[in-house]
């Protein structure tokens, strides 16, 4: 098993956190994992992204040129990654914000109105990222819910223990839609 993933959006959408949470869970599951942010000049100008690899094998390059899974939280990220996704790969699109389309029919496009779901259920857009991550986990058999919950306990629990439960509910919401 090996998934090469990209999480992209604008600053504040929590795309680095999504990637970290997934990488952390992958580590807890005993997989090889790497996480690397876009740290160069490309992050100046509003978009942020990170690459995550989860693999049963040793990981050579941690950078991802052709993701098997890409998550785009805003329009600029859709434009940047839609043509890079590997054929038969998955593109998760935050359809609350992104209204773009593509001619590509060799990839799976999975839309989720994450900001609307976040507002309707938690009265904040801040959990849109976690809802998308839950949706991704339901669609792709990468890691199970228990491992993600453990990662939330460790990562969120350390700094914001009061946010642990709501993050878990956001994962479950994303899984159920």
């Amino acid at each position: 098993m090996e998934e090469k993933m990209v999480f992209a959006g604008f600053g504040g959408q929590g795309v680095l956190f999504m990637g970290k949470l997934l990488a952390h869970a992958g580590m807890l599951a005993g997989k090889n994992v790497t996480w690397i942010p876009s740290y160069g000049p490309e992050m100046r100008g509003g978009t942020a992204n990170c690459s995550v690899i989860i693999s049963d094998n040793r990981i050579g390059s941690p950078t991802v040129d052709e993701p098997t899974i890409a998550v785009v939280m805003n329009g600029a990220s859709f434009d940047k990654f839609v043509d890079k996704v590997k054929p038969d790969g998955d593109l998760f699109v935050n359809s609350s914000i992104v209204d773009r389309t593509t001619d590509r029919n060799d990839i799976n496009i999975i839309k989720i109105n994450a900001n609307d779901l976040a507002y309707d259920n938690f009265q904040t857009s801040k959990l849109a990222n976690v809802i998308v991550l839950g949706h991704l986990l339901a669609k792709k058999n990468i890691l199970n819910k228990e491992i993600i919950f453990k990662a939330i306990d460790e990562m969120v629990g350390e700094k914001r223990p009061e946010m642990v439960e709501i993050n878990k509910r956001a994962i479950e919401l994303g899984m159920s839609v």
């Binding site: 970290k20 990488a23 580590m27 994992v33 790497t34 996480w35 690397i36 942010p37 740290y39 160069g40 941690p62 950078t63």
Partner: peptide
């Protein structure tokens, strides 16, 4: 290098 500095691994 920049990759090793910025990358997270267990």
């Amino acid at each position: 290098d920049g990759i090793l500095g910025q990358m997270m691994e267990p």
